[in-house]
Simulated scan of single mutants.
Amino acid sequence: MKLVGRTVLITGASGGIGEAVARAAHARGATVLLVARGEAKLKALSAELGLRAHAYPCDVSDPSAIESLAATVRDAGHSVDVLVNNAGAGRWVSIEDASPEELLSMAQVPYVAALLMTRAFVGEMIDRRSGRIVTVNSGVSRAVWPGAVGYASARWALRGLDLALKSDLRGTGVGVTEVVLGTVSSDYFTNNPGSEEALPKIARMVPTITPTDAARAICRGIERGRGTVIPTGQLKWVAWSSQHMPRMNHFMLWLTGARRSARRRTPVSPAPTS
């Protein structure tokens, strides 16, 4: 699917990978629908890109807001050809150090947001027998490291969504692409202090790429109809070893990963014996 003349909706488009995808798709001749919570940034990007760029502020963690967004997009006369589920959030933190609210928010975005965004737009694609659903995922969906339970499990759920869609949409004319990225030089580590230190040392073998590099890989994957996009050879090896040598893969990530910090815990007294 060539992007020229197509309409591409990107979530998380106010910065980082999402902004880069919007710029790359727009440069390829697509109309881009920019979705994120940051209204000011979206409008600035839309104004900069000019024609064929439209800002739609929306909190994709809110199911009712997604329904309103879909109605607004349809009322504006846009038919979405490509949905890029890019919005994501979450710290790398041990499960007991995260509040229930934080764990729920990590599941909400990216997983539930991608699930409901897909539901909101895929019906029209099926009717037209044309379209593509793209999910932007993390390398942790292949190789899990310690100290990131909420984040990792949400990303595995996103992987499950991708596989389920590929099965469910087979034969409909709607394609499905999962993009698996390693470290990207975005603002993630700035916005989530302490996370960079939690990255396993072995992960340094996977080169850091820029948001522009990621966007180029995503757009190329869409245009070539790829089912899975993994931009670097090193990350492809990580994904391969996770599937074919899972025990070694998991052990090396554990061995080189962050250790739990010492905590004071109230010792549990043994039960009295009679």
Rank of each mutant, 00 (worst) to 15 (best):
R74Q: 00
A65Y: 06
S61R: 14
T135I: 07
C58A: 10
T172G: 05
A107P: 03
A65V: 03
D97S: 13
R119C: 03
W156I: 01
A157G: 14
I126W: 06
A114C: 01
T172P: 01
G131D: 06
L163I: 13
C58V: 12
A120M: 06
P146D: 13
A143E: 15
A98E: 14
A89D: 10
V176L: 02
I66F: 04
A154L: 15
S167Q: 01
S79P: 01
F121W: 06
E102M: 08
D168N: 00
A87F: 04
A157C: 12
L83K: 03
D59Y: 05
N85S: 08
F121S: 04
T72W: 00
R128F: 01
R91E: 09
E96A: 06
A76G: 04
G150P: 05
D59L: 05
E67A: 08
S99R: 13
S153E: 08
V82Y: 08
V109P: 02
D75W: 05
P57A: 10
V112F: 14
M106P: 10
S94N: 12
L161I: 03
L158H: 02
A143V: 14
A71Q: 02
R74W: 05
D81M: 07
V82H: 10
L165Y: 02
S94W: 15
M117R: 02
A70D: 10
V93M: 09
Y111L: 10
E67N: 02
W145G: 15
V112Q: 05
P100N: 15
G77E: 05
V180N: 07
T135N: 11
R155K: 15
G123L: 09
V179E: 07
G173P: 00
G90K: 04
L165F: 00
P100S: 10
R129H: 03
V134T: 10
A71R: 02
T177C: 09
S64M: 02
G175I: 02
L163T: 14
R129D: 00
T177A: 03
E178V: 14
S167H: 03
T118C: 04
G160M: 10
M125A: 07
V174C: 08
A107T: 09
G88A: 13
A120W: 05
A65W: 10
A76L: 00
A164F: 06
R91L: 11
A98D: 09
V179F: 10
Y151L: 12
N137Y: 09
A98F: 12
V122A: 12
L115S: 01
A157I: 14
A70H: 12
A113L: 04
Y56Q: 11
M117A: 00
T135F: 11
A152Q: 14
L103N: 04
E96C: 04
E101F: 11
W92H: 11
L161P: 04
V60C: 08
V84T: 02
N137V: 12
Y56V: 04
R91V: 05
A143Q: 12
D127F: 09
G123W: 11
L163C: 01
V134W: 08
A143P: 11
M117E: 02
A65H: 12
L69V: 05
E178T: 13
S138R: 05
E67F: 00
R142V: 10
G123D: 08
I66K: 15
P57Y: 14
E102Y: 02
V73W: 00
V73N: 04
A143F: 15
V180G: 04
